[in-house]
């Protein structure tokens, strides 16, 4: 027999989070709530003399399945919230009525059955379960193996995105760039040699004018560059010195 306290605990831990499936707006919240449901069910299994199954429940559902759900939620957009507004006329009320009716039907059927409870049940210890699984049901287990492998393969196939075009070689990329009118020559690197050799300063052309395109566009937008022309004067001054020297000679 099961302690009533345990039952009611399980009931609350499962039913109330399960209701979030109907009413919560964020899928992530729901997934978290369902994890709780799964744990509650694991408790129930243990309470029902199926400790191995309880462990498997935790491992498979909370550990694997629900985590998979969360991954997928993240993949498809974790921040999406869903409007609870119904779009199909009458769907909500009919669906709720039917769901309640379904529950009521099952409960009424079960309650009418004359059910007795075995006082000496077999406890689902791992060894016991294993002897069944690899004894009478070994064929089923093997088939399930196939099922799992197929499922894994299936998932791979379904999520695989085929390459739409053949991969381009470096030569092709280059040719395409030239064709698009790109400059075949290397661009000037930013920085003024030996003066301000940092990325924030544009390079200077031989005339001493700054080459704006050499600076990262991002830095420019952020306003983190410095004006290259300030080095111009410096340079010209130096040139004068040098030039004068040359002129002198």
């Amino acid at each position: 027999m099961v302690s009533p306290l345990l039952f009611w605990f399980v009931a609350f831990v499962t039913v109330i989070p399960a209701l979030s499936l109907l009413f919560a707006r964020k899928p992530v919240h729901v997934a978290a709530a369902v994890v709780l449901v799964m744990v509650g069910l694991a408790v129930a299994y243990v309470a029902l003399e199926a400790p191995f199954l309880g462990a498997v429940q935790i491992i498979v559902y909370t550990g694997a399945v629900m985590m998979l759900f969360l991954f997928v939620l993240m993949l498809v957009g974790v921040d999406k919230t869903e409007s609870l507004k119904e779009t199909i006329t009458g769907q909500r009320w009919v669906a709720l009525t039917l769901a309640v009716g379904l529950g009521a039907l099952v409960i009424s059927v079960v309650s009418r059955l004359p059910l007795s409870v075995n006082e000496q049940p077999v406890v689902g210890e791992p060894a016991e379960v294993a002897s069944w699984l690899f004894g009478d049901y070994v064929l089923v287990v093997e088939v399930l193996g196939f099922v799992l492998i197929s499922a894994a393969l299936g998932a791979l196939v379904l999520t695989h995105v085929p390459r739409l075009y053949p991969k381009r070689t470096q030569a092709e990329v280059h040719a395409a760039r030239i064709a698009a009118g790109a400059n075949p020559v290397n661009q000037a690197f930013p920085g003024v040699y030996a003066r301000h050799n940092a990325l924030d300063a544009p390079a200077l052309d031989p005339e001493g004018n700054p080459i704006e395109s050499s600076v990262s566009r991002v830095l420019k937008v952020r306003g983190q560059t410095i004006d290259g022309s300030e080095f111009k004067g410096d340079t010209q001054a130096r040139r004068r010195e040098l030039g004068a020297k040359e002129d002198d000679q």
Binding site: V2, F7, A11, V15, A18, L21, A95, V110, L115
Partner: peptide, 23 residues
């Protein structure tokens, strides 16, 4: 407490699941 209560609990959970699918 009889384990049959878990069957009732399962019926409730099943109904909630069904309603989720529909809604």
């Amino acid at each position: 407490m009889s384990p049959v209560n878990f069957v009732y609990l399962a019926a409730v959970l099943f109904a909630i699941g069904a309603a989720t699918v529909l809604l």
